[in-house]
């Protein structure tokens, strides 16, 4: 079992299957908050659902309204269980905090593959491949 250390954006424990992309995600306009499906044209994850996944992506992008979208997904039950970023920015950080989704950044996300079993505990990420 591999262990990676990062920086806490929002504390807590989360476990699940990794869904990994190298592309930044815009939650506002890029993800359907009713289903959790990525709808941005041309995105690697287009058509896939982030619901109940450990969502691994470099960072957020787009409108700051994206923080509210994450919150809406949490309330709808379509949010990721946890998030891992390369370098978190304002939109995802604020979204994670207000939605209480355990989130870490400054993690070498290349080491995580879609389908890996991932556990986040505060600043630690454990992988079972």
């Amino acid at each position: 079992m591999e262990q990676l250390k990062g920086r806490i954006i929002y504390k807590g424990k989360a476990e699940g299957e990794a869904l990994v992309t190298e592309m930044p995600i815009s939650f506002y306009g890029g993800v359907d908050p009713n289903t959790g499906v990525v709808i941005e044209k041309g995105h690697q994850l287009n058509g896939q659902s982030v619901k109940d996944k450990i969502l691994v992506f470099p960072q957020g992008k787009g409108s700051t309204v994206g923080s509210y979208t994450l919150y809406r997904m949490k309330k709808n039950g379509t949010a990721p269980t946890g998030m891992i970023n390369k370098e978190c920015e304002t939109i995802v950080a604020v979204g994670a905090i207000i939605s209480e989704i355990p989130t870490v950044d400054k993690v070498d996300i290349c080491k995580i593959k879609t389908g890996d079993k991932v556990a986040i505990e505060n600043d630690t990420v454990r992988l079972r491949q």
């Binding site: 908050p33 700051t64 309204v65 509210y68 979208t69 309330k75």
Partner: peptide, 16 residues
Amino acid sequence: VAGVSYQNLGDAGLEF
């Protein structure tokens, strides 16, 4: 403070 229009906030924003 921005994020005032209900069009951008939606019900989740209102709840927050």
